[in-house]
Design a protein around this nucleic acid. Structure first.
Lengths: 192, 192
DNA sequence: TCCGATTAGATTGTGTGCAATCAAATTTCT
DNA sequence: AGAAATTTGATTGCACACAATCTAATCGGA
């Protein structure tokens, strides 16, 4: 019992001595030689970085009344107004299960309107309001603030971004392969 | 109306012609010269990659009865059994609001037990059950399956991982700076 | 020693994210 | 032309994720 307590303290000590996440040699993160070690997992690095970004964005987006996913939606609409739910979903990788309530809240905030398309009534067209359009100017300082926080040089950041884009493409291709393999075996699964 | 419809179709066409996310020159992703363009945002690349990883992991983890965050928790416990909630939280960057229900579900699945520490009753110690320990062997093939899906060479993946780890450190440091700046101005905000 | 400050985990509330499913509309095939 | 297949967005159900808050326990200072 006492030994276990000491071990917890040691772990905390290691964390406290750094303002940053533990290095990859921290035993509490798993044996570096072990394939299941957290420290060796690219997916965890991506996951953790994404969460860190969320935390950095929050104080910047709060004054605009936006959450980070809402900000992404607004970015997509500022880029191209009057899009369908699917179009927005494709741009940011979210489906209608996530988007519908999110868009409803944006509509409730007065930033967008949602209307059934006349040419295809299955579609809902999302249009910025004046307030939604105006918000862009207030959001204009955010990328610079983030870049400032990141401090790194532009080329390195752009390079990292391209690497991640390539990674995402590879991952999604692998997902499609896995999904595509099923219809051949069990046609009933095609709907999945 | 017709013009707007055509625009939607054009956008969809661009998406359909690729099994992968659009290239950075897709106008629906924003003008590349615009700082607010989705395509130029590193945070979005991280966000999108994280989601892609989730999708890739899901079919692999489903047979083990685990979600991806639960898998991370198990990785932390396989690395070091008998940890407190805080210790797990520090390892994977989650707080008790997320962990408590998650751990309760793992306990309900019979993979872990949770007990108040005798030496400090504020703490809850999370211990693997036999089933929880045994699960590690079933999970052993997952990193290889993911690596296989990624296909890239190891050095490049490790390099990307290190870049992301550094990015996360930078981001978290920036978050702490922002948080630390407030107490000096408004002590009442120190609790935030 | 006692009290105020801090900590650990739980809870509350809100907003995601995604699989599965559904209803209505549109497209495709016979 | 009519039926089957597919598409679109909405809904249901479940599991996160995190800020704010709370209770109980522990720590630190007077």
């Amino acid at each position: 019992m006492v030994r276990k307590q000491d071990r917890d303290r040691d772990g905390d000590q290691a964390m406290q001595n750094r303002a940053t996440p533990p290095p990859t040699t921290d035993p509490a993160m798993g044996d570096p030689g072990d394939a299941l070690a957290l420290s060796g997992q690219l997916c965890f690095a991506v996951y953790a970085a994404a969460h860190a970004f969320n935390r950095l964005y929050r104080p910047l987006l709060d004054p605009l009344g936006l959450t980070y996913p809402q900000y992404l939606v607004m970015l997509a609409l500022w880029a191209e107004d009057g899009r369908t739910v699917s179009s927005i979903g494709k741009a940011i990788g979210l489906d209608s299960g996530t988007l519908t309530p999110l868009l409803k809240r944006l509509e409730a905030s007065g930033l967008v309107t949602r209307a059934r398309s006349r040419s295809d009534e299955r579609q809902v067209v999302v249009t910025l309001t004046e307030a939604g359009r105006t918000l862009k100017t207030r959001a204009a300082g955010i990328p610079a603030a983030i870049a400032c926080a990141m401090g790194g040089d532009r080329d390195r950041i752009a390079s990292l971004r391209r690497e991640l884009e390539g990674l995402r493409r590879t991952l999604l291709a692998a997902v499609e392969e896995t999904t595509a393999a099923f219809p051949a075996d069990t046609p009933g699964r095609a709907e999945g």
